[in-house]
């Protein structure tokens, strides 16, 4: 019998009933007596499987259903249709065995007590998760060292910077040794140095413990740097499942070739090779079909004073923008109205 997958979703769906009203006092007064509700499908028939130990990124625009999916996986929300399993457990049942095996870190919420040092909350978690004191101390020392927290854990949380607080939140989430770690926008609002430090830490944690990591982030670099597999969700539906390279190849198969030269050829002269997308002398860039890249490189290297020639995939941000701009086939067919819900 094979290993139980960390996560298995089978046509998972979540429908919210939300009230709606026009802006203004009159509408607010009317809403006191008569309220209009609409049903929103935040997640629709989502199916995928994640093996244990994998690092997976959930990508999607605001309101795509990423956070709703994570919350269902953590047992906070009950699905309205389909089935979810985490480590073989149904999350909505909130069995204590499952809750001991998972952790959820939310960049915009905190579990640390605001007025107390993080150490006090860690002690509470030790009791709640029933971790032996010596094991707890060992893990704490290791995490504090890895995240370079030092004395930070002894200061009241209200006095910490955002980055320090988020590192302390990560420690709080990891002290019980979860086998599945859900990270929801963990780097939001952080400076670049802190983002890099957190990424390094998560990668190292995954390597050392073999914990499965599921990450949502608006920062494409987070996902690109951390996740070997990405799942793109839009309008609550799965739009892509694979590696970042595969996503780029599928969405923007053209390679971007850029060069600096003393004299640049005209767009017409290059039309046979590809499409010029940028021209700021002495630099230019053109999108070229993969099979024509060698020919384009040879042509551009032959330009007078040619240097800094580079071949790259299109930037991930651009790829994502293009992907979200494309309508899903079922939407185009009108099989189901577009029903993008909020993440909450």
């Amino acid at each position: 019998m094979g290993e139980v997958p960390a996560i298995r979703l089978d046509r998972l769906g979540k429908r919210f009933r939300v009230s709606q009203r026009e802006p203004g006092l009159r509408a607010a007064l009317r809403a006191l007596f008569v309220r209009t509700h609409v049903e929103i499908d935040a997640v629709c028939e989502l199916s995928f499987e994640v093996p244990q130990g994998q690092r997976v990124g959930l990508l999607g625009p605001n309101g795509a259903g990423k956070t709703t999916t994570l919350k269902m996986l953590a047992g906070l929300l009950h699905p309205t249709s389909g089935r979810a399993q985490v480590l073989g457990h149904e999350p909505a049942r909130r069995s204590h065995e499952l809750l001991r095996s998972i952790a959820l870190v939310m960049g915009q919420k905190r579990q640390l007590s605001w007025d107390l040092p993080a150490l006090d909350t860690y002690e509470l978690n030790r009791v709640v998760f029933d971790v032996e004191r010596s094991v707890h101390q060992l893990r704490l020392t290791e995490l504090v060292e890895l995240l370079e927290l030092g004395e930070v854990v002894r200061k009241p949380v209200r006095t910490l910077s955002l980055g320090e607080r988020m590192k302390c939140e990560l420690v709080a989430a990891l002290l019980h040794g979860p086998r599945v770690l859900f990270l929801d926008e963990p780097t939001i609002g952080m400076d670049v140095a802190m983002q890099l430090a957190l990424r390094d830490f998560v990668r190292e944690h995954n390597r050392r413990t073999g914990a499965t990591v599921v990450l949502t982030s608006h920062y494409m670099e987070d996902v690109a740097a951390l996740c070997e597999r990405i799942l793109v969700i839009d309008g609550g539906r799965l739009r892509f499942d694979g590696s970042i390279e595969a996503l780029v190849r599928r969405t923007r198969p053209l390679r971007r070739v850029s060069v600096r030269a003393d004299a640049l050829p005209t767009d017409d002269e290059l039309r046979a090779l590809g499409q010029v997308v940028e021209r700021e002398p002495p630099r230019m860039a053109l999108d070229v079909a993969p099979e024509r890249v060698p020919e384009a490189v040879a042509r551009l290297l032959a330009l007078p004073g040619s240097h800094d020639l580079a071949v790259a995939d299109a930037p991930l941000e651009e790829v994502m923008r293009e992907l979200f701009a494309m309508r899903a086939p079922e939407d185009e067919a009108g099989a189901e109205p577009s029903s993008r819900g909020s993440d909450a």
């Binding site: 001991r100 971790v131 290791e142 040794g177 086998r179």
Partner: peptide, 13 residues
């Protein structure tokens, strides 16, 4: 971090 989960219900009991 690399130790097994401290699932110590028996201890607590």
């Amino acid at each position: 971090m690399s130790e097994p989960n401290a699932s110590s219900e028996t201890r607590a009991g």
